[in-house]
């Protein structure tokens, strides 16, 4: 993972897209790792009772992905200061879910740079599942 420096980032820059495609086993593991027994994430028959055509990708798993998009882009010395997201539409397993980010503002703050990002996750139909934002601190070159 390479380090990104504040001087190389400009308003309007786009982050390289990140594609996530969750298997049903991954959803199960995320339920286990977060002690979440909600059946809509592993029981397709029950998910239908709540009106869903399939099991659902957890909202918080998508939050973990949003955070990963930012940390992967920032590099090891980047520090994520804030993330926020909404879960607007359902995400399903075995579907390419694409994360994109864009730099909306930059400012220097002491010996680091602060970058504001706007983030969106879309499904293969182009529907927005998650709009979000993040703030990340990047090192300055030579600091």
């Amino acid at each position: 993972m390479s380090q990104r420096y504040f001087e190389d980032v400009h308003e309007g820059d786009e982050l390289p897209p990140m594609v996530k495609n969750a298997s049903r086993a991954q959803l199960f593991l995320f339920s286990a790792a977060t002690q979440n027994p909600h059946r809509i994430h592993y029981d397709r028959e029950y998910a239908a009772v709540e009106g869903h055509p399939d099991v659902l990708v957890h909202g918080p798993l998508q939050g973990a992905w949003l955070s990963q998009l930012v940390t992967d882009w920032a590099g090891p010395k980047g520090r994520v200061l804030n993330v926020g997201w909404q879960n607007r539409a359902r995400g399903f397993p075995e579907q390419d879910l694409t994360w994109r980010g864009k730099v909306t503002a930059t400012r220097r703050e002491g010996n680091r740079g602060i970058v504001e990002l706007e983030i969106v996750e879309t499904n293969p139909e182009g529907q927005t599942l998650v709009p979000g934002t993040a703030t990340v601190a990047l090192p300055l070159r030579g600091s």
């Binding site: 991954q26 593991l29 790792a33 955070s67």
Partner: peptide, 30 residues
């Protein structure tokens, strides 16, 4: 981290975490 599919070395490799300026193995904040 495994379940999320986020294999950032700062969560798995203490030397990598220290190299990145941390004091030890980092926990995925979410």
């Amino acid at each position: 981290a495994w379940a999320a599919g986020d294999l950032n070395p700062i969560y798995f490799d203490e030397a990598a975490a220290r190299e990145a300026g941390y004091d030890g193995l980092v926990v995925p904040p979410t």
